[in-house]
């Protein structure tokens, strides 16, 4: 089953790449603006031999990782605090619902004014976008705590900290992990967007340089790299999720009673 799926996946990808080669070659779209797969692959081959490319990749990953770490840390702490302190959830709900839908890219002018074109600008956008993903999942997760389990823990004399540790956290963890996985993807999108628009160093800025330089295949090659990065990040996030939730029904795959 697994082998068949992998084979199908590979065949699908191969067909997609072949299509990318054929469409411009047949003249359905202009080669000048949509180069065939082979020319993009050539440009990619050139890119990876360039030291500046690896520096840019490092810059993007730094912005992504730092931003994600800050967002996850802050999201979990704030989420737990808001859920545990009485009345805080109700008091903050409207503010959270107001702030959450503000698109991070709308903050670009603010980021540029505050920090110019450096890493901190990227971080502002990345953290703002991914923080809400984590926070909202934590809030939902805490809401999901089984009242019977909570009462049982109280009856057994577990203190507030022990209840957070043994009842609340295990219940919320699958939600938190979903939040982290979503945040990881969003963080990459925002890191690249920030670099592309603001010009902070990284893959996004390199895409912009290729674009203004009329280097079309190079631009597509860099876009492919960001796609691959997204793929790796998603696979990585899923692996972390599976490890952290090895004990959970959703991962154990047992029949639920």
């Amino acid at each position: 089953m697994r082998g068949a799926n992998a084979a199908l996946g590979a065949a699908g990808l191969a067909a997609f790449l072949a299509l990318g080669e054929a469409v411009p070659r047949l003249g359905l779209v202009k080669e000048a603006y949509f180069p065939p797969t082979s020319r993009i692959a050539d440009a990619l081959g050139q890119e990876v031999t360039d030291h500046a490319f690896w520096t840019a990749l490092g810059d993007t990953l730094t912005g992504w990782a730092l931003g994600l770490a800050i967002a996850v840390g802050a999201g979990v702490v704030v989420g737990l605090l808001v859920s545990v302190v009485p009345h805080l959830r109700e008091a903050t709900a409207s503010t959270i619902e107001f702030l959450r839908p503000i698109p991070s890219v709308a903050l670009i002018p603010l980021a540029v004014l505050l920090y110019g074109t450096e890493l901190r600008s990227v971080l502002l956008l990345v953290v703002y976008a991914s923080f809400w993903q984590v926070l909202v999942q934590v809030l939902y997760g805490v809401q999901d705590v089984d009242p019977v389990a909570e009462e049982t823990a109280r009856s057994y004399g577990l203190g507030p900290w022990a209840r957070v540790r043994h009842v609340l956290w295990p219940t919320a963890l699958p939600y938190v992990m979903t939040g982290v996985r979503l945040a990881a993807a969003v963080a990459l999108i925002l890191a690249v967007t920030a670099e592309l628009v603001i010009g902070a160093p990284g893959l996004g800025a390199r895409i912009a340089v290729a674009e203004t330089s009329q280097a079309v295949p190079d631009m597509y090659a860099l876009v492919v790299v960001t796609g691959l990065l997204g793929l790796l990040i998603n696979v990585g996030a899923r692996t972390v999720e599976r490890r952290a939730l090895a004990w959970h029904q959703s991962v154990r795959g047992e029949v639920m009673v």
Partner: peptide, 9 residues
């Protein structure tokens, strides 16, 4: 050294 303008262009 700081752009990617193709040599032909």
């Amino acid at each position: 050294t700081y752009t990617k303008i193709p040599a032909a262009t």
